[in-house]
Amino acid sequence: MNGNSLGRGSRRRMLAGFAALTAVATVTALAGCSGSTGPGDAGGGDQPSAAAAGDFPSYYPADYQSIVDGAKKEGGDLVIYSNTDQENWAPIFRDFQKKYPFVKISANNLESDEVFQRQLSEMATGNAPADLLVSNATQGWAEYASKPDTTMAYESPELSKLPDFVTLLPNVYAMSMDPIGMLYNTAVIDKELTSIKDLADYVQANKDKMKNKVTTRDVSGAFGFSVSKAWADNATDSWDTLAKVMPFARAETSSGTQKDKITSGEYGAGFLISGAVGFPAEKDAGGLLKFVLPKDGTDVIGRGIAITPKAPHVNTAKLFVDFVLSEDGQNAVAEGGLASYRDNVKPAEGLHTYQEVEEKAGKDNIIVVPYEAASEAEVKEFTDKWNGLLAK
């Protein structure tokens, strides 16, 4: 595995390393856009929601209703800065609002790094409206959380029922554990691919056809750097594979852009693409697209969620964190195309779990992307080497 222990070593890092460690589209997730019901209706006619009746799990604090009451006094607003697509959010918002129908959600879809840049900028001015930050940029999270007073301390009662790796950093929890894979257009590539090495071999056998027809993630961003470095450091024969495929590749700044251009045929394939984009893309493409968890190494990345230090709607934010970590929340997470990790969530068509990722990619091929910041020297060394291989 490229001179590194990938299988059991990488899994140990998941259990220990995690715990140690602008046009912006604002969507108000009301009944019309998220499938939830309006205020006062919990999805069952005139029946009150379970939360309204104080029906909480036995392991929740006896005074948990006070958080619900506090959320109502806050006006029921919730503001989220995230890099998560509305397609992924839709079932989560729908089911959360069934439980708490008085809540109105505004979710900004930002670039991975912009989540932190915008929050820091607004904190500096004293006007920071976000209640929650959600991003899967591990380097970005590590740098942001290393600064003082950037997250609020909150220990969800759900943590007692979850694996240790859910705590990515102090006060930062995993909403999902998403695989990073390879997406290809079957109209362009007429061969089944199971690994990035397979793609490299196909490119080498079809050099004229595949010139500039591959895309990978721009490593100048925190997300792109984190997933690319993790794969290069741990995957089987990674740099040999990269040397073959990268001269045919161009970098893009988002998985969504990569997906769109692969669908149109501008690219034949792309690798290190988020499963949050890849799984739904394959499902909706009618056979045109295939999303693969590479057998030579599949990155898995925690999608971090944390409450901001001076959240304007702190009680509502706590309700949301508890929900996404709960059994109901994790089922909604899976329905939205993200990979849930609770054992009770069973894979089905359109639903994806971390356990499924282990099965498809192979446990020994899982590369858990660490929530840690690289030094400037490490960043420069890696990005220079990576970018030096790209198509000229």
Results as ranks from 00 to 15, higher is better:
3 G>P: 00
12 R>A: 11
12 R>Q: 11
14 M>H: 05
15 L>K: 11
15 L>G: 09
21 L>T: 15
32 G>V: 08
36 S>D: 12
38 G>R: 01
42 A>H: 00
45 G>M: 06
67 I>F: 06
70 G>A: 12
78 L>Y: 00
80 I>R: 00
87 E>D: 14
88 N>S: 14
110 L>Q: 10
112 S>F: 14
116 F>L: 06
117 Q>T: 15
121 S>N: 14
136 N>A: 12
138 T>V: 12
163 P>G: 08
164 D>H: 08
166 V>M: 02
172 V>H: 07
177 M>E: 15
179 P>L: 06
180 I>S: 10
182 M>R: 05
187 A>P: 01
187 A>F: 08
197 K>C: 05
200 A>R: 03
206 N>F: 08
215 T>P: 05
220 S>K: 13
222 A>E: 13
224 G>R: 10
225 F>S: 05
226 S>D: 08
226 S>N: 04
232 A>N: 02
232 A>C: 09
233 D>T: 04
243 A>V: 02
248 F>M: 09
249 A>M: 03
261 K>H: 11
261 K>L: 11
261 K>M: 10
269 A>Q: 08
280 P>Y: 05
290 K>N: 10
290 K>F: 08
294 P>G: 07
304 G>K: 00
305 I>G: 00
315 N>S: 07
318 K>V: 05
325 L>S: 00
341 Y>P: 00
356 E>M: 08
359 E>L: 12
364 D>G: 04
383 T>K: 14
384 D>M: 09
388 G>W: 01
